[in-house]
Amino acid sequence: MTAVSAADEVLDVVDRDDRVTGQAPRGEVYARGLLHRCVFVLARNAEGRIFVHRRTASKLVFPSAYDMFVGGVLGAGEEYAEAALREAEEELGVSGLGQPEPLLKFLYEGPGGAWWSYVHEVRCELPVSPQVSEVAWHAWLTEEELAARVAGGEWPWVPDGLEAYRRLRAYRESRQ
């Protein structure tokens, strides 16, 4: 049996209203700039620290960049909620997480393309064993440490994650 590469994974293609219009392999979706769906999950440990990681150099999109979210694309027919849990458990290397809480959804348009992005948050009190094919380095940072790293500009951040982070901060500030 031959393993399917990430580029061959079939995704739902969606319109600007997030309605499914068809399916295509991930490689084609990125090459043609087709709209698709993505989940972002902010993982916090028992102390409230945020899981931050550097992506592996082999990633199809934004290799070796830092991210404050775990997550990824939705497969064909997959719902945001199930993708958020699947991606969080896969990338953190845990099982038995609670269902991530959905927070906000937006259409990302920027470097790398465009996709519907649904931001979630989950508490992870389990010991993590990050997926080596996805995560090259990781640490748990406080809100202040993360904000300083983002503001400092020394780390190259994934642009979609950075946009999700900014929108999440604005969302939280608007709810205070």
Rank of each mutant, 00 (worst) to 15 (best):
T2W: 12
V4A: 13
A6P: 01
A6L: 02
V13F: 07
V13K: 05
V13H: 06
V14H: 00
V14A: 00
D15P: 00
D15M: 01
D18R: 00
R19N: 00
V20K: 02
T21Q: 02
T21N: 00
R26P: 01
R26Q: 04
R26T: 02
G27N: 03
A31E: 08
A31Q: 07
G33Y: 04
H36F: 13
R37T: 00
C38Y: 08
V39H: 01
F40I: 02
A43I: 01
A43E: 11
N45K: 13
A46L: 15
G48T: 11
G48H: 10
R49P: 02
I50Y: 06
H53W: 11
H53F: 15
R54V: 04
R55D: 06
T56A: 10
A57G: 15
S58K: 11
S58D: 14
K59Y: 01
K59H: 00
P63Y: 07
A65T: 03
Y66A: 08
D67A: 03
D67R: 00
D67P: 00
V70M: 04
V70H: 06
G72V: 01
V73Q: 04
G77D: 09
E78I: 09
Y80N: 12
A81F: 12
E82P: 08
E82C: 12
A83C: 06
A84N: 05
A84M: 04
R86W: 13
A88H: 14
E89L: 11
E89K: 09
E89A: 08
L92A: 11
G93P: 04
V94N: 10
V94C: 10
S95N: 06
S95V: 04
G96R: 10
G98Q: 15
L103I: 04
L103P: 02
L103D: 03
F106N: 05
Y108F: 14
E109M: 10
P111R: 06
P111S: 05
W116G: 04
Y118R: 07
Y118F: 07
V119K: 04
V119G: 04
H120P: 06
H120I: 10
E121Y: 12
E121N: 07
E125P: 07
V128R: 11
S129K: 09
P130F: 06
Q131V: 08
V135A: 07
V135Q: 07
V135R: 05
W137E: 15
A139Q: 07
E145V: 11
L146E: 10
A148G: 12
A148I: 09
V150T: 11
A151H: 08
A151P: 10
A151Q: 15
P156Y: 12
W157F: 15
W157K: 13
D160L: 09
G161I: 00
G161A: 05
Y165W: 05
R166H: 10
L168T: 04
R169D: 11
A170M: 13
A170T: 14
Y171H: 14
